[in-house]
Design a protein around this nucleic acid. Structure first.
Lengths: 200, 200
DNA sequence: GACCTTTCTTAACCTAGATCAATTATTTCC
DNA sequence: GGAAATAATTGATCTAGGTTAAGAAAGGTC
């Protein structure tokens, strides 16, 4: 059902490598638009991720369940961002990560099979795939360093500096799990920061 | 100076995609062998990483410096493993990570420029690049989950299960920083585990 | 608007791991 | 082989963040 919404995926791809008209015409025929209600899952724990998507409108998150069954958020995604349970998508094995819509959500998606088909056929698709994998790798490496070297308060300040819109849209409980702490601790940290502000 | 040592890079690459004789002949002409003494740096903090390498013989590590100037190890590499300050290599920007030989070390390397040249020319090189980026991404994602959901003791047990040879070759101090804890804490964890063993 | 559920905050107490300091192995290197 | 440097251990004490519990706010839903 190609509509103009599919352009959003073209734009995301073209940030990484130019796409010819021929390639785009073929690619476009594979794209599908999908919508989700708040709370619905794009991919559940245990499913094999079929799609690589770009958000047209809405917000979603990726999370794991730890041994105690608690949800550990590891990513929040906004319009124009890529969304996928990427590990599962790449390996086509059951996903440990779940992806959930936090608002009504519209995405444009391409399936794993169709993307592979494009990769076999066009060098540009292969390159987009490479640059994309490199991009998300870099983000994980930054996160690794943050988790190893920064305190919870520092990680919180860093997070809201990078994406202030998080605070408007995402429950603090989920932000806490992203920071690797409990909601109560985040509450205390926020209170402490607010008090410091007042004193200045 | 292509010698038979260069085969090690071919083997590493071919784990990801087949290489034709033509491609290999060109690739091989770009490969260089480099050796380092124990303690020498393959890439220092602030340098731009020029090479993607595969270890022929020896052991090395990648580490960051935190704000206090302490070294935080984030990777240990053994024969047949890839080695690079990958973030810097990909972005061609100054590296925050340093790579240091922990023993006398021999690697086979290809430069960023030569690899890009191959990527422009051959689809297989592009594919190897993509699959490689995907592979290291998956490792970082596993590490993120480990850092968020496991205790230091669990991470230690997991680490030595995955690479027992670490304990023979790598100073505990560096292992501690990889686990995100202080050497004193690792000492205590090891003592406690040893005592548990005795009781069983 | 009233009920129910979920989220957020606060307080009191607890614990894993940090920090500081001193001692004992190991390496390194002349 | 022995001095010097570095790594590892141990003990005492401290602290960031966890846990438990309970009330306040905020969202959904009928």
């Amino acid at each position: 059902m190609p509509t103009n919404k599919t352009e959003i995926l073209k734009i995301a791809f073209e940030k990484q490598a130019p796409i010819t008209t021929e390639e785009w015409d073929e690619m476009r025929s594979y794209l599908i638009e999908r919508t989700f209600n708040k709370g619905e899952f794009l991919c559940r724990n245990g499913q094999i991720e079929q799609y690589l998507s770009v958000i047209y409108d809405g917000t979603c998150r990726g999370f794991y369940n730890n041994k105690e069954g608690e949800e550990i958020s590891v990513a929040f995604m906004f319009p124009n961002d890529y969304v996928s349970a990427y590990y599962s998508f790449l390996t086509q094995s059951p996903s440990l990560m779940a992806i959930q819509a936090l608002t009504p959500l519209t995405v444009v998606s391409i399936s794993h099979d169709h993307l592979n088909l494009l990769c076999d056929k066009y060098k540009s698709a292969e390159r987009i795939g490479r640059l994309n994998a490199e991009r998300i790798y870099r983000r994980k490496e930054e996160r690794e360093v943050a988790l190893l070297t920064m305190s919870a308060t520092e990680r919180y300040l860093d997070l809201i500096k990078r994406s202030p819109k998080l605070l408007q849209k995402i429950p603090l409980k989920q932000i806490a799990s992203y920071l690797g702490i409990q909601p109560e601790s985040l509450s205390r940290i926020r209170k402490q920061l607010a008090n410091q502000e007042k004193q200045i």
